Simulated scan of single mutants.
Amino acid sequence: MDTLPLQSVFKDFEKFINQSKTVILGTLNAAVEAEASYAPVLRKDGKFYIYVSELAKHTHNLLENKNLTLLFIEDESEAENIFARKRATLKAQARHIARDSEGWDNIMDAYGEHLGETAKMLRNLQDFHLFELTTIKGNFVRGFAQAYALSGDLLNEVRPMNDRGHGQSQLKDEDKPARSA
């Protein structure tokens, strides 16, 4: 088992999410049904930014419900084992940033620099909306038995989650699913 100091785990987490240009989004629709999608993403000053179209369900979901989950996950082709892909799951809240808001231009400049020509071209499309995503807490999995809880303003408070280990269910009997016949 890896015994890196927790600060090294945080640095590995930072490197992992900073190399990503997209993020998988988990949002809730008006019927409180979970919907998964993805969006190109910029990370700047500890926040994440997405610029998304009204044609996408997640845009409407975020305008109605600010709570979401972000998933950054290692590509299958790069994983040593698909059962232990490196991943970060972050709970976040979205804030819509209006086009006439102070800072909108600066964020969109950085978004275009980070994501290239298509992002720059989309900038003037009126059906696109900019959201700032502020993380609340998260988990970072580096592999088997290497799961960490992340908290704090920058998610830099790291705590190992491997005190339980695998093999025994942690569910109470009344919470376990019923056996099917």
Results as ranks from 00 to 15, higher is better:
Val32Cys: 09
Gln126Val: 09
Asp175Gln: 12
Gln19Arg: 14
Met161Phe: 05
Ser101Lys: 07
Leu6Ala: 11
Leu4Trp: 10
Ala92Phe: 04
Phe131Pro: 04
Ala110Phe: 03
Leu171Val: 03
Asp45Ser: 10
Asn18Met: 09
Ala119Gly: 12
Arg123Cys: 08
Arg85Cys: 03
Asp163Ser: 13
Asp45His: 11
Phe10Ala: 02
Glu80Trp: 06
Leu71Arg: 06
Thr134His: 02
Thr134Gly: 01
Tyr51Glu: 09
Thr134Met: 01
Phe144Arg: 01
Lys137Glu: 15
Asn81Asp: 15
Met121His: 12
Ser77Trp: 05
Asp2Gln: 11
Ala147Val: 04
Arg95Lys: 08
Asp163Phe: 10
Phe48Gly: 00
Asp12Pro: 10
Lys21Asp: 00
Ala79Trp: 05
Leu155Trp: 00
Lys21Met: 00
Leu90Asn: 04
Asn81Gly: 07
Val23Asp: 01
Ile82Gln: 06
Asn162Val: 06
Gln93Tyr: 11
Leu122Met: 04
Lys57Pro: 07
Leu4Pro: 06
Lys86Gln: 15
Asn156Met: 01
Asn81Met: 08
Ala84Gly: 13
Arg87Glu: 02
Gly152Cys: 05
Glu64Ile: 09
Tyr111Pro: 04
Ile17Asn: 00
Leu115Lys: 05
Glu35Lys: 10
Glu113Met: 00
Asp127Thr: 13
Ala149Pro: 03
Leu122Glu: 04
Pro160Asn: 12
Ala30Lys: 15
Thr118Pro: 00
Lys11Asn: 11
Pro40His: 04
Gly143Met: 09
Asp2Lys: 12
Val52Ala: 07
Gln7Pro: 02
Gly143Ser: 13
Val158His: 05
Asp12Asn: 14
Gly116His: 03
Asn139Val: 15
Pro160Cys: 08
Gln170Ala: 15
Asn29Ile: 02
Thr22Ser: 11
Arg142Phe: 11
Phe131Gly: 03
Asn65Ile: 06
Val23Cys: 02
Leu125Ile: 08
Leu68Ala: 09
Ala147Met: 11
Pro5Gly: 05
Val32Tyr: 06
Leu130Ala: 06
Lys172Ala: 14
Glu76Leu: 07
Gly46Ile: 01
